[in-house]
């Protein structure tokens, strides 16, 4: 999908506010991803052209950061924390439960394209472990009941 005129306008505004063109790159990626859901080859090439940066270095940065998707993901992304404090509070069992429930492995997307399940490193919410981020919302003290409700809500949409 090519960048819309509205998005290009937004990007140009971001570039004009940035210290250097390169320093607009990460904010621009956020803008493109929030509109398209991911960063396609095509959109990265357009960004490269708009910012006057070689496409290879645009792609280099996009692939360095785990939250930028260079492959399509589901409509909703579940980031389940796997790091120590959550692991001590049963994150592996939560992962198993989610994986069974969604019938996918971590790293995969449900066949209807709705949900992608990913592993996150420490989400800075160790005191309320286990936790996961669903799109832009953090969910703490996960229980089976809470997970059932959250997934049900995503499925109903």
């Amino acid at each position: 999908m090519p960048l819309s005129d509205k998005l290009k306008e937004k990007i140009n505004k971001t570039v004009s506010k940035s210290e250097t063109k390169q320093s607009a790159l990460i904010p621009v990626f956020h803008e493109v991803q929030s509109e398209h859901g991911w960063l396609s080859q095509e959109s990265m090439e357009e960004v490269a052209e708009l910012l006057g940066i070689p496409p290879a270095s645009v792609q280099n940065v996009a692939t360095f950061y785990t939250m930028f998707f260079t492959k399509p993901v589901g409509k909703h992304v579940l980031w389940l924390c796997r790091t120590l404090s959550c692991a001590l509070r049963g994150a592996e069992q939560v992962e198993h439960y989610l994986s069974e429930k969604l019938q996918i492995h971590t790293g995969e997307t449900t066949p209807d394209g709705k949900i992608t399940l990913l592993e996150a490193e420490c989400l800075a919410s160790c005191g309320t472990a286990p936790v996961m981020l669903i799109d832009d919302e953090l969910h703490e003290n996960l229980t089976k009941k809470r997970i059932d409700e959250l997934i049900e809500k995503l499925r109903r949409e």
């Binding site: 001590l88 049963g90 994150a91 592996e92």
Partner: peptide, 10 residues
Amino acid sequence: RHMGTWDESN
């Protein structure tokens, strides 16, 4: 078995 303890119905 899995690492840690999940208080799954807390």
